[in-house]
Computed example of a mutant assay.
Amino acid sequence: MIKIKNIYYMLAYAYQSLNEASFKNIQSEEFENLHDLMAAILIRGVSNQLKRGLHKDYLVYTEATGNLKGKIDITSSIRQNTLMTRRMVCHYDQFSENTPLNQIVKTTMELLIKSGDVRVANRKGLQKLTLYFRNIETLNPFAINWNALIYHRNNATYKLLINICQLVIKGLLMTTETGEYKMNEFLDDQLMHRLYEKFLLGYYKKEYPHYSVSASYIDWNVDDDITDFLPTMKTDITLTHGAKTLIIDAKYYGRTMQTHSLFNSKSIISANLYQIFTYVKNKDRNGSGNVSGALLYAKTDEDITPDNDYSIGGNRFSVKTLDLGADWREIVVQLRAVVALL
């Protein structure tokens, strides 16, 4: 079981803006559940945004009105027979704070307010903040088009807020048989997998600045320059120091081993090992042996925990586990041991 405080540290490395001074006091707090942690982060984040001002944008409105403005829609006016009431259908722009970003933030705050797992102090904190959103509509949380959100210079400060909102809505929210909303205890595996990857990449970037750290692409080591229809190879984390490179593939699954029913035996998941093998061999196109690969699993409650090293075809391959249920200092030791594989 992952400790709630460790999830905060993971978020802090995945989203570097959580390292701002205004969030520092969260590190000293104790949280009994994930909902309360998310509420505390939103309270700080929304408070910071209010100091900067809520984002506003020009929104398009359509209404039948006697006060003509904007663009008059003759066709719609005739179809709706608005002339009988001395009105016309008009399309007009209005500079408003009722933007999708603010709607998502308000929707998330109200969902957390209704969650019984958020402590009273944090629920009151969220309720006070919603007063600043009184002119902003809420959304159906399951109908939000996250891919349609666009960030630019004027709203870039919303990135952290929206990422937290997405974790709450996509990772924690579910509906009951009666259609009411309910919060899960922990994020689903798919979102935790993404957070796990972002955390590892962010951690090594911040803590190992003298290394080259990236989620880099690998070219296929083809003989005739023909790469049509070959899949893209993008690593989760690539560490480079001097002439040596370590490719890390982050894995957050409910299990780390596959079972063979015929012989009742266990082995490393084949597809994962084939994937890291392909990455390393194509990266080490000269066969120097300076490229290594590591599968880094998040620890599960399985009886067997992989901790193996192999030398295959002149390259080193490791299969390790990271215990996210340990104290943070122990996690740091484990992460340092992974770098030692380089």
Rank of each mutant, 00 (worst) to 15 (best):
I7M: 09
I7Q: 02
M10F: 15
S17W: 08
K24Q: 12
E32I: 08
L34E: 14
A39T: 01
I41C: 10
L42W: 06
L42D: 02
R44W: 12
R44Y: 08
G45H: 14
Q49I: 04
K51E: 15
R52N: 06
H55Y: 15
K56Y: 14
E63Q: 14
G70L: 15
S77K: 05
R79K: 15
Q80H: 11
L83N: 08
V89D: 15
Q94P: 08
F95V: 01
N98D: 14
L101K: 15
K106T: 03
T107C: 13
S115A: 14
V118F: 14
G125E: 08
L139C: 02
L139A: 00
A148C: 08
N154F: 13
Y158H: 07
K159M: 11
L160T: 06
L161A: 04
C165V: 05
V168F: 11
V168M: 11
I169M: 03
E177Y: 04
G179A: 02
E185L: 10
D189F: 13
Q190C: 01
L191T: 03
R194T: 07
R194D: 15
F199W: 06
K205A: 00
E207S: 05
P209G: 00
P209Q: 05
S212L: 09
A215L: 05
D224P: 02
T227A: 12
T232W: 07
T235M: 13
I237E: 10
G242S: 04
A243W: 09
T245L: 10
I247V: 08
A250F: 14
Y252E: 07
Y252C: 08
Y252H: 12
T259C: 01
N264A: 00
Y274W: 13
Y274E: 02
I276Q: 04
N282A: 03
D284K: 01
D284A: 00
T300H: 12
G314D: 02
G314Y: 12
N315V: 01
R329D: 07
E330C: 14
E330P: 00
R336Q: 13
R336D: 14
V338P: 06
